[in-house]
Nucleic acid binder design. Structure first.
Length: 503
RNA sequence: GGCCCGUUCGUCCAGGGGUUAGGACGCCAGGUUUUCAUCCUGGUAGCAGGGGUUCGAAUCCCCUACGGGCUACCA
């Protein structure tokens, strides 16, 4: 067996991946990158009843968008495939037979109804299929071998269960994040390993696959911690080495109690999915971070810090930096309550980072055709004016005054700033501007200031009003830049139009 | 109910025997600025409670409380 680091992200295609799942994938990915290991995507589709059309594609696309690209998996290929559990049935059949032969597992012919009956019959206490009850059930331990043969020959469906030790023993789980966890087998039940439909349950499939795929570290959500002792026992029963485990804390709802769940998508307050999801069954649409205008780097950075920190005050990480800094030991043990407001802040940070020209194409695409005919310098000028004033790129093309003269003016601003003498000032300003040959920001500013000085006016007496007639609003980018952007002709036109409308 | 995990500002994350308990988001105030933002400065607010151990506990141990997870022929 090789000693290389191999980790996997193993979602089941029962719906879209939410933030928690993406974070699990991210931590696996970072861990692999950090150690020069391999990140594998495995699809756990052993429950045929919960299959959701499009879910697997969604998972792939979501990971692609985030930049968490598997090096091995259905799409990427690899030596350890197939990477879809529904295609690995032969292996599971072969391996479970070994467990039955060795006595570590047994066949159980009980119907779901008979088990339900036992459960509801147990007043007070919780009924469990375990060493204390199994001999009163119909299985290959309680029945004679003739009876078992007959049942099988008659095509009686059966499950295969793990046989917990008769006498209690302590199972030790070593967790990379939580340390040692000890559980007594006497509280564990005889879990179903193979269902009547011939498909393995999660417990069996994940152990077999992790072994055969030579997974070195199992990094998964905390919800698996309680069944890890069973998994350890399974490795032992197979005679296989036990991989390292790391159980990640859960992501909690922003408000209220409980872990974040797909139901939280319905509140419509904030996205919980990376990409928009159209439910094929209900026809409902749940919003996605991508569609809301979040940048993948911002989204990834946000979930990175939801349960991990580098131990310092660094908050901005590229994927590469995160891979360099990542360390399982620094994963926080407690569940993290997700805070949508911070997601906004991360997006702003990434929008303002680096050269503005990297947003030219994204801006055009966010404009949905409205900026199709714009030149790159035009786009760049707009980005320079707006990037530090918006949280999302799509807010920029939503500014109507970028395209046309305003046909209405913010009433509040009019009330506060429009004075009887304003119209005259603006008419005079128009004449000053008309006289400028080189209509650039610096010249406009110089002339504007010269005009104020000559008339002994303050900025407050003219500039907000100038802005009002040009944009219809009380806030926005530098007016000198903006006037330059729309040009002399449009500037004069808007001035004239505004003065006429407001006088 | 049982088992397991957890608990530092409202939220996220540092600190891990001696700290004025630090940073970020948010919020508030001030400054810069032609408005709005950006940016800068400051403020707000926290070690769940109780017992130990110790000269000294937010930090180590125990109990309680609270939160979370699991307890399916789901993953």
């Amino acid at each position: 067996m090789s000693h290389s680091i191999r980790v996997r992200f193993a979602p089941s295609p029962t719906g879209p991946l939410h933030m928690g799942g993406v974070r699990t994938a991210l931590y696996n990915y970072l861990f692999a990158k950090k150690h020069g290991g391999t990140f594998i995507l495995r699809i756990e589709d052993t429950d045929q009843t919960r299959f959701v059309d499009g879910a697997e594609t969604y998972i792939q696309e979501a990971l692609d968008w985030c930049g968490i690209v598997p090096e091995e998996g259905g799409k990427a290929g690899g030596e350890y495939g197939p990477y879809r559990q529904s295609e690995r049935s032969d292996l599971y059949q072969r391996e479970i037979q070994r467990l039955i032969n060795s006595g570590a597992a047994y066949k159980a012919f009980d119907t779901p109804e008979s088990i339900t009956a036992k459960r509801s019959g147990a007043k007070g206490a919780v009924w469990q299929y375990d060493s204390t009850t199994r001999m009163s059930m119909r299985n290959s331990l309680s029945l004679s071998s003739e009876e078992v043969e007959q049942l099988e020959a008659a095509g009686h469906p059966y499950t295969v269960r793990f046989k917990m030790p008769d006498s209690a023993q302590e199972v030790l789980v070593q967790d990379e994040i939580r340390g040692e966890i000890r559980v007594s087998t006497h509280v564990l039940d005889d879990k179903v390993l193979m269902k009547t439909d011939g498909f393995p349950t999660y417990h069996l499939a994940n152990v077999i696959d992790d072994h055969h795929m030579e997974i070195s570290h199992v990094i998964r959500g905390e919800e698996w911690l309680p069944s890890t002792p069973l998994h350890v026992l399974l490795y032992d029963a197979f005679g296989w080495p036990v991989p390292k485990f790391a159980h990640l804390p859960l992501i909690l709802k922003p408000t209220g109690n409980g872990k974040l769940s797909k139901r939280d998508a319905d509140t419509g307050q904030f996205p919980i999915f990376p990409l928009e999801w159209n439910d094929p069954l209900t026809g409902d649409t749940s919003m996605g971070y991508r569609e809301q205008g979040y940048l993948p780097e911002a989204f990834i950075n946000m979930i990175l810090l939801l349960g991990w920190s580098g131990g310092n005050e660094e908050e901005l990480y590229t994927l590469e930096e995160a891979a360099e800094a990542f360390n399982l030991k620094r994963v926080v043990k407690a569940g993290a309550r997700f805070n949508p407001e911070k997601a906004l802040w991360f997006n702003e940070q990434y929008l303002r980072k680096g050269d503005t020209n990297r947003w030219v194409l994204p801006l055009k695409s966010a404009a949905e055709g409205k900026m199709e005919s714009w030149s790159d310098p035009q786009c760049q000028a707009v980005l320079d004016m707006f990037l530090e004033r918006v949280q999302f790129l799509h807010e920029i093309p939503a500014k109507k005054y970028l395209f046309t003269a305003p046909d209405s003016y913010d009433e509040k601003v009019v009330r506060k700033k429009w004075r009887p003498e304003t119209a005259d000032y603006l008419k005079e300003l128009a004449e000053v501007l008309r006289g400028i040959d080189s209509f650039d920001s610096a010249t406009i500013e110089r002339e504007f200031k010269g005009f104020l000085e000559a008339r002994e006016l303050g900025f407050g007496a003219v500039l907000p009003q100038f802005r009002l007639v040009l944009t219809g609003t009380g806030g926005g980018p530098s007016m000198f830049d903006f006037a330059t952007f729309i040009g002399k002709k449009a500037t004069l036109h808007r001035l004239e139009k505004g003065v006429a409308a407001l006088s």
